[in-house]
């Protein structure tokens, strides 16, 4: 047996970052490289990719560099706070670079140095791992980044989103903050991660202090307490509203829509008879621009989370499962198409 190595004997030089400092460092690093820092999206999502700052901004030609932390909820991963390595809600730090710079890998590696990882003392590998989210009609090519045998980052070149081929593509870097912190602080359990130290006393407040209760209670809610019938009802309501919005958008702005022709005719008539000046296209454009596609996307996210809850409750039978996934995918694809059209 090898000699026991303790955290203290390894980290001889500097105190590892707290969970909080880790977030600061990553934010600072990417802000210095031109990223807009966004706040977490305030609707339940399963991954940072589902935030509109990724899902919608990767569509269309407009460049964007953006970074944000995203609490990501996966009800079936809940373990009542009893498993040291699994969480119902974990935190992703998401970076979107559109288009990706040619030195994106080198910049990424520099970000690891920035959070205190001396790469010369570690084993780092980029291993093939292609990401796919069927419910979002999204996929990409990339790697999982392995550091001393631990996956610390998902690195993806987005190829398609909402069923739409992307051009330019986006580079997506997703750090698992808990795993990184566990690695940096050499903690066996996520709950032992030091979230922050009291600046006066140096006393550590742990991840467990902040989040254990939440993990326990949400595991109970997700697995036991959530009312299945009501979840189904919520799902139906959100889905119906989302569908209505998408139908209305498509009726009004689809290039083939009869309504559009009618509307153009009306504007034409009005111009001819009432001698008004605004050009017809502007009127349609304004109506299209104010159309709440973003609202429809929130509804779609709600549906996705409800599906996950129903899944955790064991309420989705085999036959239903494929069907529900297809329904949510239809919403996501519908929103992506509408959004892309709205932007162009």
């Amino acid at each position: 047996m090898s000699a026991t190595i303790t955290a203290s004997s390894i980290s001889t030089r500097t105190e590892p970052l707290t969970f909080q400092q880790l977030l600061f460092r990553l934010q600072t690093f990417w802000a210095e490289r031109g990223c807009i820092l966004q706040q977490p999206y305030d609707v339940e999502v399963g991954a940072g990719t589902m935030s509109p700052d990724t899902f919608l901004r990767v569509l269309g030609p407009r460049p964007i560099n953006i970074a944000y932390a995203q609490p990501s909820r996966r009800p079936t991963d809940g373990r009542y706070g009893e498993n040291p390595n699994r969480l119902y809600k974990h935190t992703q730090f998401q970076v979107i670079l559109k288009p990706p710079p040619s030195d994106i890998q080198e910049v990424y590696l520099a970000s690891l140095e920035a959070i205190g990882i001396d790469l010369s003392e570690h084993d780092i590998k980029f291993e093939e791992d292609n990401w796919e989210a069927p419910t979002l009609g999204a996929w990409g090519i990339g790697w999982q980044v392995m550091l001393d045998g631990q996956e610390i980052t998902q690195f993806t070149y987005f190829q398609q989103c909402g069923g739409i081929d992307l051009d330019p593509i986006s580079g997506e870097i997703t750090y698992g903050l808990e795993r990184l912190a566990q690695f940096l602080q050499d903690k066996e359990s996520i709950y032992d991660i030091v979230w922050v130290r009291d600046p006066r006393t140096g006393k550590a407040i742990t991840y467990g202090d902040i989040r254990l209760e939440e993990e326990l209670q949400f595991s109970v809610y997700n697995f036991e307490a959530a009312e299945v019938e009501k979840l189904w009802e919520h799902l139906r309501l959100y889905e119906a509203e989302c569908q209505d919005l998408l139908a209305s958008y498509s009726d009004s702005f689809s290039p083939n829509a009869e309504k559009l022709a009618e509307r153009r005719q009306k504007i034409h008539d009005r111009l001819v008879h009432e001698d008004e000046t605004p050009p017809p296209s502007e009127d349609v454009q304004a109506a299209q621009r104010r159309f709440p596609v973003l609202g429809a996307y929130d509804l779609c996210l709600k549906c996705s989370h409800l599906f996950n809850l129903l899944d955790a409750r064991g309420a989705i039978s085999v036959t239903e499962r494929v069907g529900v996934i297809a329904r949510i995918r239809a919403l996501a694809v519908g929103v992506a198409k509408a959004y892309a059209a709205q932007q162009s």
Binding site: I10, P84, H122, F183, E188
Partner: peptide
């Protein structure tokens, strides 16, 4: 995929052992 120093060797071993334990 590296040539670790004696010091790094211990760090990398420790990291891999922790992952495997989990």
């Amino acid at each position: 995929n590296t040539q670790p120093s004696e010091h790094a060797d211990e760090i990398i071993r420790h990291g891999n052992e922790r992952v495997l334990r989990a």
